[in-house]
Design a protein around this nucleic acid. Structure first.
Lengths: 257, 257
DNA sequence: CGGTATGTTCGACCATGCTGAACAGCGGTC
DNA sequence: GACCGCTGTTCAGCATGGTCGAACATACCG
């Protein structure tokens, strides 16, 4: 581990978590480093375009270079490229919002967002992250990971976001077992009150889950007795098709129908 | 300048420019570094989530952490936050695509994209970059920068993207003078054949241009004799309103009407 | 099976990164 | 206007962390 690169990354992480800008002294305090150390790292990051300084206040913020990298990440994402058309078709077919996500540490991050056709004002959620355990997208991926990785994730704190969020490893394991058995994860108001999600994992050529695709929307609409099976089937079929596009082995990871 | 942080940033830059994934040997060659050096940097970046390795091929690619930072950059952008509603209104009023951009090195980067209402399939361009001199968004910002910064930008190569791209410092200075005089930059098929742009700068509380807002679309529609003055006025008015929202001094930077 | 090219590991060396101390500038208070 | 507190910035000495040559392990190809 190269210490100074790790420190620079932690600075970027701090600048990216909540406060739009931070001062040298504040960053030094948060990271437990000397001010000249932080200052030197910031200057280098600034020269690279990853950070910029507000001249008037002296405070630092993320720079446009990170957006450029984020965009490049999306452009290079094979999962996203291969999902987009099928996600659009799914959104049209089901008349629901469709998201594609990947696991990033203990969260699932949206890499593609297909709007519900005909809806009014919607906010693009690409780049947004949700704790994996509180979302169908996240549960769908983790359910198919190797045991060691699942254990690792379950050993970390499982934060409650609503009153319905499952936060004990036992309860989350149950949800994962169900997702594994059915091939589809269902989440009912664990991330947001009123919202639910249904998602299925997507596998790559090696048979490993690399992401998931799912619908998100009002729980009373998605989890209606007649809707849920239909939505689940459509999501699973789309996930399988994307997996095939990515070269996944037949039934690789997925439950046979 | 901290060398190892700079090297790490250059690795990210290489991974973000074209090829979706690169090997250690290829990166070492491009950067003129030893393979163990690159390997160590990649390992650290991987632990930070900014890079990930394809286990099957051994190659490295940008990781989800960069998308998270890109998203955080957008979330923290005051220019973007204060532009969004006015950009939407402008797109509705003019029935055109509206972009908001910021200068990033020698390019202008789209930080907000408002779709043309009613259009069919559109690609979100947030994060996309265009050479500043070949776009109205870029010219609108640079026209109001201090002379020293303008000179610096003009001393760099001015690449041609179409047959109409102005590439000599003299020609670009003329375009900048016109943008300065009128308060609005107009670009006719310099970035893309068939497309034009009309943009105005946005100023912050210190009176410095921090971005621009403009319309982009087919040249024959935007630059029609009756359209152009109407679009220019609406874009300029919107830019002024956003500048006021950002606390810019009255007529700060903008030309008085 | 041999050759080639890759990613990875190891350890010695020295160049770089780190930090305490000090300074410059700014805003607030009296 | 002087003083104080706090910030970002600079400097130089020192210790450590980063670099890289050499070697190795692995995979692929003919």
């Amino acid at each position: 581990m190269i210490q100074s690169v790790d420190r620079a990354a932690r600075i970027l992480h701090e600048l990216g978590s909540g406060s739009p800008s931070l001062g040298v002294t504040e960053l030094a305090s948060r990271l437990g480093l000397a001010k000249p150390t932080v200052h030197g790292l910031l200057r280098t990051l600034e020269q690279c375009g990853l950070v910029s300084q507000d001249i008037a206040t002296g405070r630092y913020a993320l720079g446009p270079g990170v957006l450029q990298l984020g965009n490049a990440y999306l452009a290079g994402s094979e999962l996203r490229a291969r999902s987009m058309l099928r996600a659009r078709a799914l959104a049209g077919q089901l008349d629901e919002v469709v998201w594609v996500g990947v696991l990033a540490e203990a969260e699932v991050m949206v890499v593609h967002h297909e709007f519900r056709p005909g809806d009014g004002v919607q906010i693009l959620e690409v780049g947004a992250t949700i704790p994996w355990h509180a979302s169908a997208l996240g549960q769908a991926i983790v359910a198919f990971l190797p045991d060691g990785e699942v254990d690792g994730l379950l050993s970390r704190p499982l934060r409650a976001l609503t009153g319905r969020t499952r936060t004990t490893p036992e309860a989350v394991r149950k949800a994962l077992a169900s997702a594994f058995d059915k091939g589809v994860a269902v989440e009912n108001q664990e991330a947001n009150v009123g919202d639910a999600g249904i998602a299925a994992p997507v596998f790559d050529h090696s048979g490993r889950p690399v992401g998931s695709i799912g619908v998100v929307g009002p729980a009373d609409r998605l989890l209606q007795r007649q809707s849920k099976p239909r939505l689940s089937r459509a999501v699973l079929d789309t996930a399988r098709a994307i997996s095939r596009d990515l070269g996944a082995p037949s039934h690789g990871g997925h439950r046979p129908s």
